[in-house]
Design a protein around this nucleic acid. Structure first.
Length: 221
DNA sequence: GCGACAG
DNA sequence: ATCTTGTCGC
């Protein structure tokens, strides 16, 4: 079976039902230790005009934010990009690259939304539920929800609200730069997600785990 | 009905 | 996401 979804033989309706079921497994209780030891950043890029999916992972010491290991995994792209269903396209590669790290992190920063998603299961939340790891979503754009613009100074933030729910934060991570969309993935609270991102900013728009994973996935690092 | 729409 | 150098502005 293959129609508007290319090679993917599933259905949009089925995928959404799966998201609703998995979203019920998401925990917003903060399980991250006060001083985690290892952090990791994850991101996905594409090669061969999209035919190849490339996932990158970077493991770093939480205290110094210095990278200690990095891995890249390539596999055939299985599905086209469909807003709201991003994880079905990118999650397999992320799980594979996680397995290649010397050991799992105490907290994972995933490029994309956490619960700031129509059905509260963005790729960072899906990644958390699938792996059991605490996770945070760090996106460059809004998928859903409304918000006021945060002030001009680094650290200023406003809540992102969708259908009456507080689903994340719009954070000015760096002056004169577009804000980031931060939301809990799994086993991290709303406040915890914001705090963790603020603590890993180092003068760039993206928090260190995400910045390093980004440059690897985009064939720069 | 129309527009928006992570990567 | 990706095609791509220099350039304008703070």
């Amino acid at each position: 079976m293959s129609t508007a979804f290319g090679d993917w033989d599933g259905s949009i309706v089925e995928a959404r039902r799966m998201q609703e079921r998995l979203a019920a497994e998401v925990s917003l209780r903060d399980d991250v230790r006060e001083t985690p030891r290892w952090l990791a950043g994850f991101d996905v890029g594409f090669e061969d005009e999209g035919a190849t999916t490339r996932a990158a992972a970077i493991l770093l010491a939480a205290d110094t934010l210095q990278p200690v290991a990095s891995e890249i995994v390539r596999m055939p792209t299985s599905m086209p990009y469909v807003p709201g269903l991003l994880s079905f396209r990118e999650l397999p590669a992320l799980v594979a690259v996680l397995a290649r790290l010397p050991h799992p992190p105490d907290l994972a920063f995933v490029d994309g939304q956490g619960i700031a998603h129509p059905r509260r299961l963005g790729i960072a939340a899906h990644f958390g539920v699938a792996t059991g790891l605490p996770s945070i979503g760090v996106a460059k754009n809004v998928l859903c929800g409304k918000h006021e613009a945060p002030g001009p100074s680094a650290g200023e933030h406003t809540p992102l609200v969708h259908r009456g729910d507080h689903i994340g934060w719009v954070l000015r991570s760096k002056p004169r730069c577009n804000p980031l969309i931060v939301s809990p993935g799994h086993r991290v609270s709303m406040q915890g997600a914001l705090d963790r991102v603020l603590r890993t900013l180092r003068g760039y728009r993206l928090p260190e785990p995400t910045r390093l994973a980004d440059r690897l996935a985009s064939r720069r690092g």
